[in-house]
């Protein structure tokens, strides 16, 4: 290291940014873990999606602290939070807002826009599959363009904006599956599982006593936006980008890369939006691991949460009781790294 030169950019800057990213994420994680016991992967997945400027779909049976996790995340960030309980009679206007006729002080009436609960930094869409597809679709524009349009007026939503939706996979009577276009807008789908036995002790101790823990804010909106800028700056080597593309293409049944199980059991594969999501989450994972560039293992680690909800099984796949996770695992086993190793 004796021979010094004058590089265009100092690599120490990248090092500092990585360390800052990791410290903020670690602070958020520790604060959330004061309330949520276990579920490390879920917590890190939510935080990675927050940094990647995406939305999260949490799926799990009742009682696994999905809603509590979202509320706790809102507590750790000094951001506005709103919760929408999705019900079958919920209407789009109940989400995005509506024009209300109001009386002027000077006399007369005027139409004014009354904001809906979507106008918040962190939106919890609880039991999202209980509303009709018409109401679910009210989130489409908000989630993709970060705007809402009411009565020919398009209004931007606050930034940062993140939607965290929950749904449970067992109670399907009277529910409406999310449309493919809606599901595709979630960056990741995280499956919340049961805690371990050791974690049950901590859960019961924390929740059945007199004192209840509550998370404190450790970051604000500007910090989140800074995290997002850092994440976007992470470079992706050609080999890694190629792997992401090949993985996404392998989920498409018409692709020549698709393994046999995909050709037989998949009706619809991931789209280019899936490849974008794959790279964004992989960048977050690389930063969390202290790396300056994305590696193939980051892509593989991101494949399951990113691709599982973008795969639509065919009739044969359903009849053979395949799950999208099986498909993604088969794709991961089939597609090697670019080196063929």
């Amino acid at each position: 290291m004796s021979q010094s030169a004058s590089p265009t950019v100092d690599p120490a800057l990248a090092h500092a940014e990585v360390e800052k990213f990791r410290s903020v994420m670690e602070a958020l994680r520790q604060e959330i873990q004061r309330v949520i016991v276990g579920q490390d992967e879920i917590v890190m997945g939510v935080l990675a999606t927050l940094a990647a400027d995406g939305h999260v779909l949490l799926e799990g049976v009742p009682g696994l602290a999905k809603t509590l996790l979202v509320r706790t995340l809102a507590d750790t960030l000094s951001l506005s939070f709103s919760r929408i309980q999705f019900t079958p009679d919920l209407m789009p206007a109940d989400i995005v807002g509506t024009m209300v006729l109001r009386e002027r002080e000077a006399g007369g009436h005027e139409l004014r826009f009354e904001e809906g609960p979507i106008s918040a930094h962190i939106v919890l869409a609880d039991e999202i599959n209980r509303a009709t597809p018409k109401t679910q679709s009210a989130l489409l524009e908000a989630m993709q363009e970060r705007t809402v349009t009411v009565a020919r007026r398009t209004m931007p939503l606050p930034s940062p904006f993140i939607v965290l939706a929950t749904q449970n996979p067992v109670e399907q009577e009277g529910t409406y599956p999310l449309p493919e276009a809606q599901v595709d807008r979630f960056l990741v789908k995280l499956l919340v599982g049961y805690p371990k036995e050791s974690e049950y002790h901590a859960i019961l101790e924390r929740t059945t006593g007199q004192a209840s823990e509550r998370a404190r804010p450790v970051a604000d909106g500007n910090t989140v936006l800074e995290l997002r800028r850092t994440l976007r700056a992470v470079p992706v080597p050609e080999q890694v980008r190629t792997l992401a593309i090949r993985l996404v293409r392998a989920t498409q049944p018409d692709s020549e890369l698709a393994p046999e199980v995909v050709q037989k059991c998949v009706a619809l594969g991931a789209s280019p939006r899936g490849a974008q999501a794959l790279l964004l989450i992989a960048k977050a994972y690389a930063l969390l691991a202290g790396r300056y560039a994305v590696s193939c293992e980051d892509i593989r680690a991101a494949a399951l949460p990113v691709l599982r909800h973008r795969i639509v099984l065919s009739f044969r796949g359903r009849s053979e009781r395949r799950s999208p996770d099986d498909i993604v695992r088969a794709v991961l086993a089939t597609i090697p790294d670019t080196a063929g190793v």
Binding site: A233, Y292, A293, S295, A339
Partner: peptide, 27 residues
Amino acid sequence: DHQAKPHHSVAAALEFSLAPQSAWEWA
């Protein structure tokens, strides 16, 4: 990268060493 699993990618370092553009690539 595949066998030794270094913390930082050797292949990425080789690729970016041709002409690093940013602080991240230098790093």
